[in-house]
Design a binder for these strands. Structure first.
Lengths: 117, 117
DNA sequence: CACTCTCACAACCATATGGTTGTATGTTAG
DNA sequence: CTAACATACAACCATATGGTTGTGAGAGTG
């Protein structure tokens, strides 16, 4: 799958900061598995509702999840495309690294030829 | 490419925290492009050498780069496999999301049949 | 209406983070 | 040996982060 990466540095900051917390990764995973209310999510953690609420807010600001009112509940739903964009970002780094590795291999192969011939 | 993800939660924290800073992402990119000393990297930024040194240390603790002494310099080199692992991690999330989306599509398709038949 | 549930938000606190400066140590060039 | 360079590391500071409690406001229920 091809995903364009048109994120600002601030966007990228928000995404990786959001992913850099164990609780938030867990919330994200649960939300992927099944969309559910903030309080339903909060039941799983040994911390206050407000704390979980803040974590969800961080994920929301990073656009990793969206919230939608349903009655008195706020339903948390994963925003797949943002994950895809983060992957695309890292893929770019990795591709650079792979390209670089290939270049180095080429250089080494050439010195082998020179040294051996 | 298949990459196994056998990282502890702490490892994952370190990787994403390291990537959650613009300066560190830039350092990583430069190190990918060409391995170079800490002071060579530091020249590019409008901050003290010590600050850049700390950023490199964060990247190193996350295993995104390695340092190797060469004379009086410390050469910073990208550690590609860690990037690959981070990608694999996000791929897992995305795969979960895609699977979930497929499930939902299936459910919707079934209700269409029921509603339409 | 009164009650409960769910959420929003503010105030507060301890610790982590990202920067600074200063000092010390090892390495290379004269 | 001396000077300059690259690095390491500690102390310090301001702000961000991750948690708490408390208060208040909509939304559903008896």
């Amino acid at each position: 799958m091809v995903v364009r990466v048109d994120l600002s540095e601030e966007d990228v900051d928000r995404i990786f900061k959001a992913l850099a917390d164990r609780t938030r990764r867990d919330i994200l995973e649960r939300a992927i598995h099944r969309e559910q209310s903030v309080s339903a999510l909060a039941h799983h953690y040994d911390m206050s509702f407000a704390a979980v609420q803040k974590h969800v807010a961080v994920l929301e600001r990073a656009a990793l999840v969206t919230k939608e009112r349903r009655g008195r509940e706020q339903i948390v739903r994963t925003n797949g495309p943002t994950i895809a964009r983060a992957i695309a970002l890292l893929d770019q780094y990795e591709q650079l690294w792979v390209d670089r590795a290939v270049q180095i291999d080429a250089v080494l192969a050439r010195s082998d030829e020179e040294g051996g011939g």
